[in-house]
């Protein structure tokens, strides 16, 4: 039962509903059931928030270190270097996200152009 198993118009939609929608929304629904029982200042909520932040940090690291698609063709050192440079400038200039984003993206683009 793969994406190309059935040659009907509805199969891809069913595939997306099961492997995409259900696969993600069951966690959201569970999150509602758990989050709705937590008080705003519960230590458990602080821990949950720390785990959520670390999870997103892991996604960030993976998108930079092991990207999919066109970013794969950029050298690893350039990807890491551009991210560190952008983040450093962001910290040094009063934590304005757009400064970090712009400088990191510009570094990556120019670096790829020159290499």
């Amino acid at each position: 039962m793969t994406w190309e198993s059935l040659d009907t118009w509805w199969w891809p939609y069913l595939f997306i509903i099961i492997a995409g929608w259900l696969a993600t929304d069951i966690w959201r629904w569970l999150g509602v059931l758990i989050g709705n029982r937590l008080a705003d200042d519960a230590p458990l909520l602080i821990w949950v928030r720390a785990v959520a932040t670390a999870l997103v940090a892991a996604v960030i690291a993976k998108l930079i270190l092991y990207p999919s698609g066109a970013l794969q063709d950029f050298p690893l050192a350039l990807r890491i270097g551009a991210a560190i440079f952008g983040f450093g400038l962001f910290l040094a200039t009063g934590r304005k996200p757009w400064i970090g984003i712009l400088s990191a993206v510009a570094t990556l683009f120019l670096g790829r152009l020159l290499l």
Binding site: W27, I34, G35
Partner: peptide
Amino acid sequence: VTLSSIRLLPMVAALIP
């Protein structure tokens, strides 16, 4: 997909309150 999406649980649980 579902293993990668477990992260949605704590995110949602933290945002709901």
